[in-house]
Nucleic acid binder design. Structure first.
Lengths: 198, 198
DNA sequence: TCACCTTGTTAATGAGCGTTAACGCATTTC
DNA sequence: GAAATGCGTTAACGCTCATTAACAAGGTGA
């Protein structure tokens, strides 16, 4: 039936496909990669993908909706958990975003690059999730820096996203060893950028 | 017949094409826009473009080589001019990059997004120009923050590029009025980020 | 053993698109 | 004035590529 209610199990075929599709889309763009390549990346051939997805668009849609939703829910969770000290909440948000940007570089790349290839309804949904995520940050930032006008805070948040999402351009040192160093550097720079904005 | 026979020579057809192609490529991706659309954007139709460019690839190549070259020469000029005070040089580099990111948002978007659609020779050239530009920054940053190891400085530079290149995500307020405000905010945040890295 | 569902395969279809061909028409040049 | 050149046009070609059709094999349950 529906592949939803099960989570543990080794990576299902659907998940393999999504992972490889994310990598390929990030590398060569949505239109730059064909279904045959995606199929080959998971050991099946072209049209076999249609047993798991209604179409190529659906893969991109699921990837983008998935990442936007996970970012938002993760952010909400962190805000709820560390409720009280705004500084701690902001640090937690930054940490969560960095973890995501380091673990899922392809998705981070896709997330602000291939949004316009979605069907209207999906694009609207993704944009709504992204906006809520930004507003979450804006609120917290304005609590830490009360003097900051809202438009300025929003610009600052977008800019810090640009900073944090630069992980795909950074060397791959983050993966093998000392990944914590890259994460810590990004964290410090984000805080420095916010501090200079306020 | 020409509406501007006066001093600044009206934009030649080639320039119109490049400008519109940059905008369209940035909006929908290189593979997402057809030659007919580019032609329509400048008032001619599809194949008419081939009187000005040998092909669609050539437009992208000229755009990317152009922007990389201009960034590099502009950076070199600023380093040469304000020679002496590293702080002033860094501020000048930041200012130049921001001017560019605000004036030519489409090109900034393209520049780190569609590199892989180029022929090998062009891609190699663009990458070389980009690397030189990064090294220019790394040197200056290490003069301002002497304790910073080179790999860390390089990561910091890439991240600040991510921050400065976020202009396409910022509201269009930068254009109409108070554009200086956005530029100044980005400048402060960049300095703050570097400061926190060092 | 016999359906039957799942998950593949390869071949065919049909649309989109970059590119080229063939032609028209000002304007310039000899 | 005729030829050449610059700059367009529309029509056609050919290739790529997402999608569908038709078919096959392994596993499961009655």
């Amino acid at each position: 039936m529906l592949p939803w209610p099960c989570e543990p199990t080794p990576p299902t075929r659907r998940e393999q496909i999504l992972k490889e599709a994310a990598r390929l889309f990030a590398e060569r763009g949505f239109h730059g990669v064909g279904v045959d390549e995606i199929g080959a990346a998971v050991g099946i051939s072209g049209p076999g993908l249609y047993r798991h997805f209604p179409g190529k668009d659906a893969m991109l849609a699921e990837l983008l909706v998935g990442i936007s939703g996970r970012l938002l829910t993760g952010g909400k969770r962190r805000v709820a958990e560390a409720d009280g000290d705004p500084e701690a909440v902001l640090d937690s948000l930054i940490e969560g975003h960095i973890d995501f940007a380091i673990d899922d570089r392809p998705l981070i790349t896709l997330h602000d690059r291939e949004l316009d290839r979605l069907r209207d309804s999906d694009r609207k949904l993704v944009r709504q999730l992204q906006r809520q995520y930004v507003e979450l940050w804006v609120e917290v930032v304005r609590q830490v820096y009360p003097g900051l006008p809202e438009p300025t805070a929003r610009s600052a948040v977008h800019s810090v996203f640009g900073l944090l999402n630069s992980t795909p351009h950074l060397g791959r040192r983050g993966r093998c060893r000392g990944g914590g160093a890259t994460a810590e550097l990004l964290h410090r720079m984000a805080r420095g950028a916010f501090g200079a904005a306020g």
